[in-house]
Design a protein around this nucleic acid. Structure first.
Length: 304
DNA sequence: GTCCAGGTCGCGC
DNA sequence: GCGCGACATGGA
């Protein structure tokens, strides 16, 4: 058994109010591999392969109030961890927890609403995301036309069959990179993981990303308008209206509503007494939230 | 056994 | 631009 050689702690103090546990648990992403959530101790864990190939296991936790929080990040590895590795990890954690996003305007809108909207308070609103846009794209495709249990299974299978093993505990693996997936033929891929007809979309995406014809990480570019971004997302096979809205949320843009069966059931039950309604009427419910509509819907559901 | 899921694609009109 | 069937897989 390889011994752990390096354990470091990095402390990040978020600029604004920040609720670690709410950020991690308000989105189902935390129950998709390779994320591991230790609810008892409130530790978010995952194995990651860094740019230089080193495999690390990260343990992320928080102490202090939402006004004055401190994030603690342990890096476990059998490799020597250098300053560059630490900086990469800090950047990764900033990304998945959205420490750089500004929610002040959303909070103001919440304050304008009465009652339970005030419970959102400062520090909530952030929803967990994956370290890479590629991983979020793959997972989002795995949420379409399937129950949540199926999404979890598919994420786990991808990690089990194509992730890189963490030396200390080989059952812990990273999420596969595009190159890991296309190292196999499509036939081998469909044999190893059971993604149904989505296998085609995901393999195609991995091919394109690996070849550089699609660069999902560029989607984080703030210069891109939401319209342009949506166009790029819809051009990817397997991403339609619902999935593009979900991806926009994961890219920090909350303009679009993810209209799927869950959305329809929720809106029907809460606002239309279970009766049929037009999509336009449903949209009107969240219209006043402007570019924060996704979060308005999300927390409307959370609070119910 | 049968049905269908946090939809999307490709077709025909 | 809109309606419709097909789509893989496993869980309900």
């Amino acid at each position: 058994m390889n011994e752990i050689k390096s354990t470091f702690s990095i402390t990040i103090c978020p600029k604004l109010h920040f609720d670690f546990e709410a950020t991690v648990t308000t989105h189902g992403w935390l129950s998709l591999a390779p994320f591991i959530w230790n609810a008892e101790n409130a530790i978010l864990s995952r194995v990651e392969q860094l740019n230089d190939g080193k495999l690390v296991r990260l343990n992320i936790s928080a102490t202090g109030s939402t006004e004055n929080p401190t994030l603690s990040i342990e890096i476990h590895s059998t490799s020597i961890i250098n300053e560059g590795n630490k900086q990469e990890v800090a950047k990764l954690v900033t990304h998945i927890l959205r420490l750089d996003e500004d929610f002040e305007e959303f909070y103001q809108l919440c304050t304008q609403q009465n009652g339970t909207w005030n419970d959102i308070k400062k520090g909530k609103g952030r929803l967990l995301r994956s370290p890479t846009v590629f991983e979020d794209l793959v997972k989002t495709i795995c949420t379409t036309n399937i129950q949540w249990g199926g999404t979890k299974r598919m994420a786990q299978e991808l990690v089990d069959k194509y992730g890189q093993s963490f030396a200390e505990n080989p059952t812990l693996k990273s999420f596969p990179k595009a190159e890991d997936i296309v190292s196999d033929s499509f036939e081998e891929f469909t044999q190893k993981v059971n993604l149904g007809y989505r296998a085609d979309y995901i393999y195609q995406l991995a091919k394109n990303v690996s070849a550089g014809t699609i660069n999902p990480e560029d989607f984080l570019d703030q210069q891109l308008s939401t319209i342009e971004l949506k166009k790029k997302l819809l051009a990817i096979k397997g991403i339609g209206n619902y999935a593009s809205a979900t991806m926009l949320m994961l890219l920090g843009r909350y303009d679009e509503l993810p209209i799927d069966s869950v959305f329809k059931d929720f809106v029907s039950g809460k606002y239309f007494n279970g009766k049929k309604y037009s999509e336009k009427k449903a949209r009107n419910i969240y219209k006043k939230w402007g570019r924060w509509q996704y979060l308005a819907y999300w927390f409307d559901m959370e609070k119910s």
